[in-house]
């Protein structure tokens, strides 16, 4: 029988669990970065979808892009390759996104602190994850025991414990700054990072449409 996650959960216990977990994680990590309450955390997640936040980010994104263009034109007389400029644009967009997050989350602080983006891009290599039959699961579990594991043990399903742990580790590598974090931190950061990325894609789509409409046709006036 596969382990299942259901939507039926009482909100009061969820709130109390969130408060309890936050206190423990702050005590263990010896950092006060997670002092915000669960209601504020909910508001942080909701912020990524508000129209006002979208507009603010679009303005920051446009300013960052102009800065990138000025830097690239001023730095070298010969124009750099399009691939390098694309990376510069993406890095500017990521930094604008991290600034919008105001350092509340690990991924935003990691982006602002990490000026060399090559490490970040290397970490995003996709790895094929194959389904593991029951027999291989046992072998994988025994081999995992010999290594020093930093991720906590998920006991949602005995057979899927190594599978879940491995996927959480892969997920941690996809979110900036979460490569070596614990399972609850990775899950929380990934939730926020996904919504931030969605806003970034929406803002860039809007800019592309705006620039396309103005670049192709002359102004009507």
């Amino acid at each position: 029988m596969a382990s299942l996650i259901s939507d039926i959960e009482p909100p009061t216990s969820t709130t109390s669990d969130l408060v309890r977990r936050k206190k423990r994680s702050s005590a263990s990590s010896a950092a006060s970065s997670r002092s915000s309450a669960s209601s504020v955390s909910g508001e942080i997640h909701a912020r990524w979808r508000s129209e006002k936040q979208q507009r603010i980010y679009s303005a920051k994104l446009f300013q960052a892009l102009q800065q990138v263009r000025l830097n690239s034109s001023a730095s070298t007389s010969s124009s750099p390759t399009a691939q390098k400029r694309g990376k510069a644009v993406r890095e500017a967009a990521d930094r604008a996104l991290a600034v919008s997050a105001r350092g509340r989350t690990l991924w935003s602080r990691a982006i602002l602190a990490n000026r060399i983006k090559l490490k970040f891009r290397k970490q995003r290599r996709p790895r094929a994850t194959m389904a593991i039959p029951a027999m291989t699961t046992v072998v994988s579990s025994s081999s995992n025991r010999s290594r020093k594991r930093r991720v906590s043990v998920l006991r949602l399903n005995k057979k899927s414990i190594p599978d879940v742990n491995r996927k959480v580790r892969v997920l941690g590598r996809l979110v900036p700054g979460c490569g070596k974090q614990s399972v609850p931190v990775i899950l929380e950061e990934a939730t926020d990072y996904i919504q931030a990325l969605e806003m970034q894609v929406r803002a860039m789509n809007s800019l592309v449409q705006l620039l396309s409409s103005y670049g192709s046709a002359p102004p009507p006036i």
Binding site: I5, R150, V153, V183, P184, L187
Partner: peptide, 16 residues
């Protein structure tokens, strides 16, 4: 594990 105090229910909640 350093995060052994986190219960499975809380992890399930985070995954939800």
């Amino acid at each position: 594990s350093s995060s052994s105090r986190i219960s499975d229910d809380q992890i399930t909640d985070l995954i939800s």
